[in-house]
Amino acid sequence: MSKLETAKGFKHSKPGLMLGIGGSAFGAFGIVKDLKKARSEADTLKLINAAVGALALVTSTLLLVRELRQLAKNDVLAD
C-alpha cells in the first residue's frame, strides 16, 4: 500500500474521524469569537456570516459523528 493510499484511508479511520471532530471543536472557538465581535459591532452581515459558519460547523461535526458510529457498527471486533 502506498503512502497516498494510506493517507486517504486515514480520513475514514476511527483516529481520523476523531481528529476531524477535534478540529471542528477547535473551530468553534473562532465562530464564537466572530459572533461576539459581530454583536458588539452590531454588524448584521457579519452576524449572518458567523451564524452560517456555525451551522456548517455543526453539520460537518454531525456527519463525522454519523460516520464514526457507522464505522463502529461495522467493526467485527467490537462485538
Rank of each mutant, 00 (worst) to 15 (best):
K37A: 13
I31G: 03
S13N: 08
K11R: 08
K33V: 07
A42G: 14
A56K: 09
V58I: 10
N49A: 09
L17T: 03
G16N: 02
A51Y: 10
F29R: 01
H12W: 10
K46Y: 08
N49I: 04
L17K: 03
T59L: 11
A56S: 08
K8R: 15
T44Y: 13
G9Y: 13
A56V: 07
T59N: 10
I21G: 00
K36C: 14
G30H: 01
E5P: 10
A25K: 00
G30P: 00
G16E: 03
A50N: 05
A28T: 01
L55G: 15
F29C: 02
A42D: 12
L35P: 05
H12Y: 13
K36P: 14
G16C: 03
D34S: 07
G27L: 01
E5V: 15
A54F: 09
R39S: 14
G16T: 02
A7W: 12
L45M: 13
V58F: 09
G30S: 02
F26L: 02
K37L: 11
G20P: 00
F10A: 07
K36Y: 14
F26Y: 01
I21R: 00
G30T: 01
E5F: 15
G23Q: 00
K33W: 08
S24A: 04
V52D: 09
K8L: 15
A51F: 09
T6V: 15
T44C: 11
L17N: 04
I31C: 03
V32L: 06
K14W: 09
I21N: 00
F29I: 04
L57G: 04
L45F: 12
E5Q: 15
K11N: 07
D34T: 04
K33I: 06
G30R: 00
L57W: 04
L45H: 11
M18Q: 07
L57Q: 04
F10N: 05
R39Q: 15
N49R: 06
R39T: 14
K36T: 12
S24V: 01
L45V: 12
L45D: 12
S40L: 14
E41V: 11
S24T: 01
E5S: 15
T44G: 12
A7L: 14
K33D: 06
K46D: 08
L17Q: 04
S60G: 06
D43F: 08
K37Y: 08
L17E: 05
L55Q: 15
V58H: 09
M18L: 09
T44F: 11
K37Q: 12
F26T: 01
K37E: 09
A51M: 11
H12P: 08
V32K: 05
L55P: 12
G27D: 00
T44D: 13
K37V: 09
L19Q: 03
A28F: 04
G22C: 02
I31H: 02
F29T: 03
N49H: 07
